[in-house]
Design a protein around this nucleic acid. Sequence first.
DNA 1: AAAGGACCCAACCGCGTGTAC
DNA 2: GGTACACGCGGTTGGGTCCTT
Length: 344
Amino acid sequence: MGRAPCCDKANVKRGPWSPEEDTKLKEYIDKHGTGGNWIALPHKAGLKRCGKSCRLRWLNYLRPNIKHGEFSDEEDRIICSLYANIGSRWSIIAAQLPGRTDNDIKNYWNTKLKKKLMALLPTHHHNQQNPPPFFPYSSSSSSLHMTTDNNNNNNHHHYYYYNTTTTTTTPPSMSFTTAPPPSTSTNYYNYNTTIATSAIMSSLPFYQNQQQEQQQALMSPMQQYYPMFGSEGSCSSSDGSCSHGGREMKKEEMGFHHHHMFHHHEEQQQQPMVVDDDGINNNNQWTEKLDKWLFQTANPLDYDLEVIKQLVISSSGNDGLFSVDENKTVQESKPIIYNYKYSD
DNA sequence: AAAGGACCCAACCGCGTGTAC
DNA sequence: GGTACACGCGGTTGGGTCCTT
């Protein structure tokens, strides 16, 4: 049984708001506030609208100090940095940009900024000998795994992708992902269309003048070492197509089920880096931490790599993300080894 | 000039979470 | 502890506008 509708859809107006409706809503809220109850508000204000619709209209358009128009380079930079670190948490990103709404930023990202970044993605290195830093065209089921190089006294870890979906969308030059996942578990992670945000960012005009250290300072350790961070499952084009690196892909080709799996990933991998035990749903705490992260972190290595290590260890065997099932045919899989290494 | 495609963005939808009872 | 309800969030849609052919 489904959830009860929030309002009687037969008796509410939908679609674009008229100036009269805007005036009614604005005047009511100016006079009475929201009263903490959006569901009751439209009736009190004399509007034939769903409470959610009123809330959205107020938050995204009518409330004071909403900023419309072009995004500045600085705003671009903040959006990119935050997106690379926390993914599509638009409300948190919006909290860093006064006057901007999450909807605004989401639309801006999906329609403009993303394309701006993709246009800057260099393509010459996309070959088997010199693969991209990570999987810019990843299809629905690529998963990252880790092994430890036992022959190396420095204890280097290798990270490699398994891609369980071979589709025609993967360009021939990208056909280095051929192996099945090492585990038959359905609980491996999807990193569909995880955009090469961090890689692309280094190509951005507003990054080009920065030193490497400064660029890295804007990225979390997780982003640096697990650069698939960030999610990119949205595609707002009405015709169902998305642009990736100048190449068009259809939604159904790309696999659009990252949402819940990615959140699982975040909670397992990212939360301990930046969020207190009780902070995951506290935007203020997020904001404070992100602020520090973005603007005050001098060196990413200030973050305790031991934490990452512990995360890797603790997740082994539980979720398939960094685990390699010893019983499976890893050697037969011939995974492609990427240069994601760190020493401990 | 017209048609079709691409783009843009306001609005909608469904789900997760918090909270009151 | 369970349930119902409201809120907030992020993904998606629909239609108006712009652009290209």
